[in-house]
């Protein structure tokens, strides 16, 4: 690990000042320390933001939810408002990592986490994300866990966050604070597809601070949930996953929010599936027909062809779990 200086800040002002000087924020440290030890990251200055007052969960006026960037994954998952309003968020968090890691890791850090592609983590391998221009060892390498959606010639790595799949489905907004003040980005604009610049993963300006993630109000009742499919039952990243939220009134699906994880270079929103559901009556046939569209545009690699059908089945099963048999 490269040597680094360490400072702790207690106000967002001090944090931004340190960030402007090139300091790297540390929240839970579960991504950053790991990647520093692997030699993937080597910040010269670490700015400890864990003392900032960004650790609150609160309901917004119209029934949305604002989760502070420094709320731990464990706190967010257990929070009564999160559990009551958006079970899909609680479930995605509780199916992530381990109880120990969830105590340390934060919501802001989670959506900033970097890919688990083994070639990215191995500093001796070619990786355009880690070392732009060096190539992509995964494209023709062992790519069973890699992306089937949203990849480019330069990069085929998946985004590993589970709760980001729920945030993408629910069209969350990311609140940012920079030297020029506050701004908000839709989740879809916050995480970037690799294109020709896989090293750029978030639309964050240098030194910008994430202050919160806001979930917009949705019509009630809203049934929601998260399904994660993986090589072992727990403490593992997703091969495929599905976040689903449905608003059914008068026997008709009025609102459908669906996204998939483990398959895309970013959490993969599924508008074709949503469009197929809206205006229809819940039924097993409907779930099946809608889920068929989940893999539209998929381009599997040598070792992950299985993900195409697995994704469709994951979405179908979660639609049935959330929407019921009818």
């Amino acid at each position: 690990m490269h040597p680094f200086t360490y400072t702790r800040v207690s106000s967002t002002r001090d944090a931004l000042a340190a960030g402007r000087r090139g300091g790297r924020y540390i929240a839970g440290g579960t991504t950053l320390v790991d990647l520093m030890r692997e030699g993937v990251e080597h910040p010269a200055t670490i700015v400890d933001i864990s003392g900032l007052p960004l650790d609150e969960v609160r309901a917004t006026e119209r029934g949305g939810l604002r989760i502070g960037a420094l709320v731990s994954m464990a706190q967010a998952a257990a929070h009564p408002k999160v559990r009551a309003l958006f079970p899909v968020i609680s479930q995605a968090l509780e199916l992530s990592a381990s109880a120990q890691l969830r105590n340390m890791a934060t919501i802001g850090g989670n959506i900033m986490q970097r890919t688990r592609c083994t070639y990215f983590r191995d500093v001796t391998a070619a990786c355009n994300k880690r070392d732009p221009g060096s190539g992509c060892a995964a494209r023709d390498g062992f790519n069973r866990t890699h992306a089937i959606l949203g990849a480019s010639t330069a990069c085929v790595a998946t985004h590993p966050s589970d709760v980001s799949v729920a945030f993408a489905a629910l069209q969350a907004q990311v609140h940012l604070l920079g030297p020029d003040g506050e701004r908000r980005l839709s989740f879809a604009d916050f995480l970037l597809r690799p294109g020709t610049t896989p090293q750029r993963e978030q639309a964050l300006h240098p030194g910008e601070l994430i202050t919160a993630v806001e979930i917009p109000a949705l019509p009630r009742p809203l049934a929601s949930g998260y399904l994660k499919v993986r090589d072992r039952q727990s403490y593992e990243f997703a091969l495929t996953s599905a976040a689903v939220a449905l608003h059914v009134r008068g026997g008709i699906i009025r609102e459908a929010k669906v996204a998939a994880g483990g398959v895309g270079t970013v959490p993969w929103k599924l508008p074709a599936v949503e469009d197929h559901l809206i205006g229809e009556r819940p039924s097993d046939a409907l779930w099946k027909a809608a889920a068929k569209k989940a893999a539209d545009g998929a381009r599997p690699l040598a070792h992950n062809r299985f993900k195409v059908e697995l994704l469709q089945r994951t979405v179908e099963r979660q639609l049935r779990t959330v929407g019921g048999h009818a």
Binding site: Y6, G29, V33, D34, Q100, L101, N103, M104
Partner: peptide, 23 residues
């Protein structure tokens, strides 16, 4: 030494965490 096994688990202020990923 990477958060992936739990052998280093300790309690910090009463909560369990991975000591290997804690600076």
């Amino acid at each position: 030494d990477a958060g992936a096994c739990g052998a280093c688990t300790v309690l910090v202020d009463g909560r369990r965490q991975n000591a290997c990923l804690t600076l």
